[in-house]
Design a protein around this nucleic acid. Structure first.
Length: 166
DNA sequence: GCCAACGTTGGC
DNA sequence: GCCAACGTTGGC
């Protein structure tokens, strides 16, 4: 991939009932493996394009007030999501089990900055420069998506990030 | 809770 | 390969 095509900024959705930004902050070393992505396009981003040091906006979906809560960084690049092979996991994939290997990919991310003010979807919808963000488009279900540097910086300004030091 | 939009599956 | 049926996502 040429440098021009490489992406440095991403957005990842999570349902906070399942795993919230604070869960990430409270995880050992503020780091977790981002398992359970079961969409090919999202997987391909993690497999082919995620690089160490890339920055990721963490977005809460499927809640009353969807919003970006903070920033994480990629600390381990794509590797097989073995939860697909574990019958006890909610992310079990019986086809993968039959083949004996997982076609799914996860990455490790570490929380770096918490927003003093989460940047809400409603807020973004009212900002002209943000309207083209993928996450705001109607029917945009992709759970891992690229974000332009401009949009990333805009959201950082809006969120007043503070570095997490604990 | 509703339902539009989307991705996947499978019959043909 | 088409496309209807189905299951899921996720905003509202």
């Amino acid at each position: 991939m040429s440098p021009k095509e490489s992406k440095k900024f991403w957005l990842m959705k999570t349902e906070p009932d399942v795993f919230s930004f604070e869960d990430l902050v409270n995880a050992p070393n503020r780091t977790t493996h981002w398992e359970g992505v079961r969409n090919y396009q999202a997987r391909n981003f993690m497999r082919d394009s995620f690089k160490k040091g890339d920055q990721v906006l963490i977005y809460h979906s499927n809640v009353d007030e969807p919003a970006v809560f903070g920033v994480a960084t990629v600390v381990r690049e794509g590797y097989p999501d073995h939860f697909a092979l574990d019958p006890k996991s909610k992310y079990f994939d019986s086809d993968a089990k039959k083949k004996g290997e997982s076609p799914w990919i996860m990455v490790d991310v570490q929380a770096t900055h918490r927003f003093k003010t989460p940047v809400t979807r409603n807020q973004l919808k009212n900002i002209a420069k943000a309207k083209t963000m993928m996450v705001l488009q109607r029917g945009a279900r992709l759970s891992v998506q690229p974000v332009s540097e401009e949009h990333f910086n805009l959201i950082l300004e809006l969120g007043s990030p503070s570095k997490i030091t604990k």
